[in-house]
């Protein structure tokens, strides 16, 4: 039995990891600058731009308040426009990315706001330009928090990727639904659940390790 199950389980795990890795990377590329600007555009801050707060604050909140499965279905036209189809692993990356961008932005914003304001003042007193305050002080000091946040995002995306399985995206969720649930195969369901647990454990442990390595506050 194992010999027939192993290849499809392996393939499904690969699809899940592919969806999560690609959407996490793209979402970070968009979420990082968005988070930096959310953290620095308030009144009296480095890049004061209140319109930015007023536009993107609510937009981020709105995206985050839509349940993921609804979001995935609602943006199907957009997904079709970007990848040419709304079915399959690559198509699933679009809603995963869209959901992760505001999540990551808020995490980056939060981690940067945790940095002691005295450090910003000290950097300015040294003659740091606003961009240097971000690159030389805020981001390095916020790094442990950012790594923790990205780990959290990765784990959340693993969960979400199982949901897009329900709309035909492949991966572990798809395997669990089609084989485990619809074909009454509890062994497949158990294998899927165990694999998900192991994947999440590995991702979380790796993230914790990186965050610990970056954190020099308690030596």
């Amino acid at each position: 039995m194992f010999s027939t199950l192993a290849p499809i389980l392996l393939q499904a795990t690969g699809e899940t990891l592919y969806m999560v890795a690609v959407s996490l990377t793209i979402a970070t590329a968009f979420g990082l600058p968005l988070g930096v600007l959310l953290a620095t555009s308030g009144r009296g801050e480095l890049f004061e731009a209140l319109w930015f707060q007023r536009v993107f604050g609510p937009l981020v909140n709105a995206t985050r308040s839509v349940p993921f499965i609804i979001l995935a279905v609602a943006i199907i036209p957009f997904t079709r426009f970007v990848v040419g189809t709304s079915i399959g692993t690559s198509a699933a990356i679009v809603p995963l990315t869209v959901a992760a961008i505001p999540f990551i932005a808020r995490i980056i914003e939060g981690a940067m706001r945790e940095v002691d304001g005295g450090l910003i003042e000290a950097a300015q007193a040294m003659g740091a330009r606003p961009v240097q305050v971000v690159t030389k002080v805020l981001l390095p000091e916020a790094l442990p928090g950012i790594i923790h946040g990205l780990t959290l995002t990765a784990v959340t995306l693993i969960g979400y990727s199982a949901m897009v399985g329900a709309v035909g995206a492949g991966g572990l969720g798809d395997l669990g639904i089609r084989y485990g649930y619809q074909r009454f195969r509890p062994d497949v369901m158990a294998a899927v659940v165990i694999t998900l647990i192991v994947v999440v454990q590995v991702v979380q442990s790796f993230g914790d390790y990186l965050a610990r390595k970056a954190d020099k506050r308690n030596i």
Partner: peptide
């Protein structure tokens, strides 16, 4: 910023970067 580089400032709570 160029002007500020001619002045050094020392703070009550040190304000050192923990990551450096």
């Amino acid at each position: 910023p160029l002007f500020r580089r001619q002045l050094g400032m020392v703070f009550q709570h040190f304000n050192l970067l923990s990551s450096r």
